[in-house]
Design a protein around this nucleic acid. Structure first.
Lengths: 131, 131
DNA sequence: GCAATTACGCACCTTTTGGTAACTATAGAA
DNA sequence: TTCTATAGTTACCAAAAGGTGCGTAATTGC
């Protein structure tokens, strides 16, 4: 008799370092430029498609729709279709989405605070190897 | 006389929503599954290549090297080559890297806390459309 | 009647990400 | 002598991310 451990159930304590743990999937979902920015933007309040495009600056219609759909699918974003013509669709954060946006805003602040340090390091690194 | 605004300098207040702002680049750097996990892992202390592979569980040698190199280039990770044979290379967090890891750990905790909510939402969403 | 508006869907294409396998060098162990 | 371990690199290939342009619906304004 042999015991197959490859399909063993995930350990009781969730761990993002465990590739089979579902929390890893949750992390991968938000480890995306557009997902992060969309959730941060929606923290300012419900927004329509066009408003989000303006806020994000350079997202394509395709990527915006695609990312919003994934976020809605995972319950982070709520999509409300007023079913009018011309269309009127509003996106907002769900309670879970809002619990995430707080942390993401901290990340935004980190980027805005330390980007100059990264820029300098990158310049030093590149200058050293191009010789 | 025409004024070209396309190359206008970035505003004085850094903003991740401004595509031309360098802080956006910083955000994109860490908006990556492997970058996030590597920095979180290094928070536990300096690690060698093989130890990181074990900790991350399912990263390929190629992606690990590639991501570490980008993080080193931007000054988040410090690479110390002891120049011995067989090779001995240690990776650790720089001060900026450490300032980031604190926030990333909060993200990890978020994923480990709320993944079940996401799983449930996803299942509901998929069940509704496959009919 | 014609154009604009809105939030998409779809087809096509390019770029980036990621995986696999083979190769490098040398010390120490079997 | 051959095997193992170390931390990579390179070439090749598959998959995912991402961009562009076109089509769609009905209502409002000209």
């Amino acid at each position: 008799m042999t015991i197959d451990l490859t399909e063993a159930p995930t350990t009781s304590i969730p761990d993002v370092f465990d590739p089979t743990c579902s929390s890893r999937h949750a992390l991968e979902l938000i480890a995306s430029k557009w997902a992060m920015l969309i959730i941060s933007a929606l923290e300012e309040g419900p927004m329509r498609n066009a408003a989000l495009m303006r806020r994000l600056g350079d997202v394509s219609q395709k990527m915006l729709t695609q990312t919003l759909k994934e976020l809605e699918r995972n319950g982070l974003v709520i999509r409300e279709d007023k079913k009018t013509v011309p269309p009127h669709v509003e996106y907002s954060l769900s309670p879970v989405g809002r619990s995430l946006s707080e942390t993401l805003l901290v990340l935004d602040r980190w980027a805005e605070t330390h980007f100059a340090t990264l820029d300098a390091a990158r310049e030093r690194y590149d200058a050293e190897r191009e010789r």
